[in-house]
Design a binder for these strands. Structure first.
Length: 149
DNA sequence: TCATAATACCGGA
DNA sequence: TCCGGTATTATGA
């Protein structure tokens, strides 16, 4: 599958779209579509995201292309290790990486691939913390994974 | 509780 | 370069 296109998934919370370039996911958007990009059904992106939202699978793993600074890549890699249904605080992730909580928050805000990089599993020490697509998405995802908080 | 500093990093001027 | 802005946290009154 060549070129640039997107696949659309309907969920209880609203639309989720995956932007795909040269057969690899480059961005995932919660709650909207990418402007001016042709839509089609693209596997395996579509079925995996659907499976995740239905609680059938505990994670997604498809070809991706992730770009970012050295630091961002390190943080995203660390976050990807957090298992389904578990959460860490910004501070805990920061300690693992010998950096500061605030820098971790910054890296989360720049996550191009939510769900694939489960940034919703990184929460504030006292509360939910923020979320790019809106905290209601974060709450929904954690609830889906059975996290009480 | 509320304010404030420390902190690591990023992007724009 | 410098500077302001973060999806934070620890501390002191």
């Amino acid at each position: 599958m060549k070129g640039i296109l997107q696949t659309l998934i309907e969920t209880e919370m609203g639309p989720v779209s995956v932007l795909i370039e040269e057969g690899r996911a480059v961005r995932i958007k919660l709650g909207g579509l990418f402007e001016g990009v042709p839509k089609m059904e693209v596997e395996p992106f579509k079925s995996q995201i659907e499976g995740y939202f239905r609680g059938k699978i505990k994670g997604v793993d498809f070809p991706v292309k992730i770009t970012g600074t050295e630091f961002l890549l390190r943080v995203w890699e660390e976050v990807r290790k957090i298992p389904y249904g578990r959460v860490l605080t910004y501070g805990q992730v920061a300690r693992n990486l010998k950096t500061a909580p605030r820098a971790v928050g910054l890296a989360m805000a720049r996550n191009p691939l939510p769900i694939y990089i489960p940034c919703h599993r990184v929460v504030s020490k006292n509360g939910l913390g923020g979320f790019g697509a809106g905290v209601e998405w974060k709450r929904f995802l954690l609830e889906l994974e059975g996290v009480v908080l």
